[in-house]
Design a protein around this nucleic acid. Structure first.
Lengths: 231, 231, 231, 231
DNA sequence: GATGAATGAGGATTCATTCAT
DNA sequence: AATGAATGAATCCTCATTCAT
């Protein structure tokens, strides 16, 4: 945040406090937007949870929409960051499993993200569009996907010509659906989709499906390798 | 709604008009809830679009929540109905394709349903839970799924022991994700997910994936059979 | 208000009550706008003074601007009405005096009108313009002015070719200034412009000035005829 | 403002800068108060237009009311100054014309003044009263008026016993009304009161009226002498 | 003198809901 | 069944003003 380039002037106490306030507001806003949605959110509540005055929220962010946009932007920033930090195994098949496990776990651990994206889609993507595609750093994700596919192809074990974006869809859709529709799915089928057992089974299933999608000869690899590594 | 069981007394003019009014309100409410969400919806707007007085909406449905619940219930009723009416081919592999095509197309043609379910999941399923699992007629869906799987197993071409609910997840998740996150996905990857070409490709991909999931020996069936049947 | 033309249906209790409410709001709004100006006025206060709910004011008038506009329109309607009801003497010179006396007295008795017009001029006439020139019924005023001038010319005692609008300006300006700037004028010159004595003197002065303006031979008419008739 | 009386110490750089800031704030405040009125004015806007911080406005003037008062005081100071600098012709009749022309033109050129005085009268003169009558330097105006009247009387061409304040009213009222109610008057009568032609005609009319008021024998002086002298 | 951060109070407008007819 | 009037409780956002630096 504080750039180390030109002038050595350290941030004044004013600036530091302001920065901290801004961060507190953002966190409160994130929590609140996630909890009750864009329309349901109350500026008053956000301010109160941030421990500041309502007017200050306006001063810092200009209004509810802009605040929401910033929250959204940061949520995307965070996923992409996590993806970048993801260390993939050399072995392409293990990499598939790792990608699925990571994606699934990220959704489970960060329902916030799913919720924000859900809100956004209900909104027709209006706010994300204003964030701008550049802010979404998708190339870093595509790099990762390509690296996995290329490695598999190089070793002659993946099908050729797979499209990274489609590959991503195959992975993400099943993880996404599991978590994002867990409530309605659970009610409809009278099951607990997010119980540890269900999750482990589901992850293994998705790993299998992804292998079947990517591998030239899935049967050579014993299915079930995606089995609950920790649970 | 009007039950045909006991007395022969035909509905009075009053009753018929009332029934029609109720239907108009429900349609208006459906449209409005879908358009702007639960929190965004205004009783005034619903009443106006139904061409009736606000107070009448209250008389008929008691309040905004109940109205929403009824809208939700009917949306589920409608999918299940469509599923029941779905005529499946004898051939199990064709049945897979048909199920995918139907599911995908239903989501495309009825974004309302995805939106309502999306809203519901953001809400933690609170309203759907009050509708009650009975109202969701899931057994008719499970019947269909089982019928397909059983037929495939009977002919020795499907893997054995596949779980209908998991099978459904494999089908639904990829269709769902494609449509339900089309806005954010489209913005992120800078593509038009719902263009006719994209849809056809995506459907073929999902068909392939589902075959790979269900079939004992996917390679015997030439991939790409799911290619745009009509479009 | 209730037109006697077509249907004999008497206003329902609802309608009558609503009409009365509307009137109460308008009166309260008039008082409040006059007291504190357009920007200073509080919808809350208006509602409270009308004995109704704030929201009802919006229901009836749509908003603060429209409410103000209606108040303004009615104020103009009232002056024009008073002018129409003004009975002018046959004698043209007496008519001049009468017109001055009426105009002066109207301003003194209805500072509301001056205040509203003052507000409006500070606003660049924006709201009056939206009322529309038709709503101002200026022709009835011009008729009166013309009648006076024509009578004087017919008797050969007024100058010919006088313009009604200019004539009006000569009359109104001096009355207007006296009342409308009474506070600053009074403070500047340390006098009480609106004391009964001052008013009587000022009226006589204006009458004289108007006679000098209109009459062909002012000296034939003993000045001071405008002297305080009542005070 | 900076008094030249006692000590020789020249203003420090600090003081000079402060003085300039103060002036900038006053100018911004003047413009803004004139533009949107007392209630409509925003401290933020004034500060921004002055290019300074809001808090600085408070430091310099203590608050919005005091700032307004100072603006008002300066506006009066400026008129009186202009009046003092007015060079009157020897000839009393020409002096009348000159006074009218000056007064009229001042109002046209300085709508600010009319607006501030208008605001003040809507306020009941509350702020002007706090400025204090001494601050208004009315005696210099009265001197001028008396000088004109006395000259006319001395030459035997003006009526005797004319009161300076009444004389002023006769002059000012017609100029004032023309400019101060130009918007509502224009809308009501559907004319452009401030077009060059209208102004010239109006000035001539007022000159005539003032002559008729002051002169013992107005007919000896050809009317219309007030015709657009320069414009 | 000058600044940016922060506050508290207010004020317009909206809305779900109820009432009287 | 259906309506229009009326209400009370929010909720967003703005502003004058003060504080800390």
């Amino acid at each position: 945040m504080t750039d180390i380039s030109d002038p050595p002037s350290p941030p004044s106490r004013h600036q530091r406090r302001s920065e901290a306030t801004r961060a507190r507001i953002l966190e409160a806003a994130h929590r609140h937007f996630v909890a009750v949605g864009l329309d349901g959110a109350r500026m008053e509540t956000i301010a109160a949870e941030a421990g500041v005055n309502k007017a200050l929220v306006y001063r810092h962010f200009g209004g509810r929409e802009q605040l929401y946009r910033e929250v959204l932007r940061r949520a995307y920033e965070k996923v992409r960051q996590a993806e970048v930090e993801l260390s993939l195994p050399e072995d392409p098949v293990e990499a598939l499993d790792r990608l699925v496990a990571f994606t699934f776990q990220y959704y489970i651990d960060n329902p916030d993200f799913l919720i924000l994206v859900g809100i956004e889609n209900l909104n027709g993507g209006a706010h994300l569009r204003r964030v701008g595609q550049e802010g979404l750093h998708v190339s870093s994700l595509l790099d990762i996907l390509r690296r996995i596919l290329d490695a598999g192809v190089a070793r002659g074990i993946f099908r050729e010509g797979l499209d990274p974006m489609e590959f991503y869809m195959v992975v993400a859709s099943q993880c996404w659906f599991t978590v994002a529709t867990s409530h309605t799915f659970g009610i409809t089928f009278d099951v607990d989709v997010l119980s540890p057992g269900s999750i482990a089974r589901r992850r293994a299933l998705i790993c299998d499906n992804v292998r079947r999608y990517a591998l030239r000869d899935p049967d050579r690899w014993n299915a079930g390798a995606g089995d609950a590594p920790s649970a």
